[in-house]
Design a protein around this nucleic acid. Sequence first.
DNA 1: CGGAAACTTTGATCTGGATCAAATCGCAAT
DNA 2: ATTGCGATTTGATCCAGATCAAAGTTTCCG
Lengths: 240, 240
Amino acid sequence: MDIASSEVSDAGTLVACRSCQARHGVVCGALSSSQLRELGRHSLRRKVDAGSEIIAQGAESSFYSNIMRGVVKLCKVMPDGRQQIVGLQFAPDFVGRPFVRESTLSAEAATDSEICVFPRNLLDRMISGTPELQRSLHDQALKELDAAREWMLTLGRRTAEEKVASLLHLIATHAEPQTATSTAFDLPLTRAEIADFLGLTIETVSRQMTRLRKSGVIRIENFRHIIVPDMDELERMISA
Amino acid sequence: MDIASSEVSDAGTLVACRSCQARHGVVCGALSSSQLRELGRHSLRRKVDAGSEIIAQGAESSFYSNIMRGVVKLCKVMPDGRQQIVGLQFAPDFVGRPFVRESTLSAEAATDSEICVFPRNLLDRMISGTPELQRSLHDQALKELDAAREWMLTLGRRTAEEKVASLLHLIATHAEPQTATSTAFDLPLTRAEIADFLGLTIETVSRQMTRLRKSGVIRIENFRHIIVPDMDELERMISA
DNA sequence: CGGAAACTTTGATCTGGATCAAATCGCAAT
DNA sequence: ATTGCGATTTGATCCAGATCAAAGTTTCCG
């Protein structure tokens, strides 16, 4: 293992990683079996507790990760403490900014997660020699760009109620549906995190959630578990 | 010329394009001279008037462009007419979404512009065979992603005054400075467009501009020409 | 040159979401 | 069970920015 353990061991449990060899993750799908074996030799499966940082804003990082399980939030913080979540990532997304060592944002596990960590040097070398991998990472960047721009519309032009509905819709999209129309899931974010994603306050988020509940669009159990009886109804609230 | 003129001639003047052969633009820098010659044979220099569309939201497009001169705004519109500008692009940026025919946003010239238009098929083929080009487009996508996320922070967490200052700062960044500290430029956007970029109304934009003027951070001539005597002062307003 | 249309500023008022302030809930530790 | 604490909800009030309404400016075209 050539990953300095000081970099990755302070917030989770390290176990040997065989997952990449099993072709999980955005990166692994684009590699040959010999590359996979090499990457596997140098990667670590890491459990990350909810709330712990994977990459710090402004810090240099010498590794990348694939998300194997859980939800990761990408966050920007201003000097005065104001905070904006600029993206959510789900398995099997790739975490890390190719080609640039310093990160302009932090990546933090929103739920208990598992990631597969591998060294930047090795992957950068593989990218150069593997057009398919370059393409795969390019695709992920374009996907994230689309998501970011869609969210800019939400932040700039939607009302608080539409914002909360948009968030529920986004998360519901990553849960497997119960039936043709209904979906249920656990929120991976606290009210404070939802507020930081939507550019609102926790009070407004809470009020809009109870509004949605009272109007029958969602049911809420234990603050965290959301049931959407009819996804179409949720979509109609977003006018998109 | 194998670009259907119906696609590109309705809003500008077409002239034969030699600019790509001269290695302008994000795309052209990554091509060999024989590829440049081929691309040049199939590209058109097009003049685009301010306000005319380059790509329509939801439409399929069979061409890409390089911006040679001018400013292009990327815009998302909701069914009810609410609108959000999700990015500004300057020469020599690339316009178009690689690999995906249908655009989720519209690209429109904000100022009178010149773009170099070339066929999607040809460039897609060149991307596959030219890792350097793939890398160059990947870099542009990552740059746009950083810009989008930076703007999400602005939309979600900054005040109206900070938003307007952020916009002026963004545009000033793309103008060449007058002296070490001072910069001057013509705004490429109307107040309505600024409002759609910042998630505000035109009245609020106008009021904040006069506030900045009265506090001496900027001078305004003819509504459109902005003079920033001290860029540091502008940056301090953004707290970033 | 005139005059209309589009853009911008300015003023008055309103309101959606922020802020301030308690309750209430749920859960972990004792 | 009890306590204590963080997360959430709910209520009361406030205010930044929206909305409504004129009144300038500028541009452009006949």
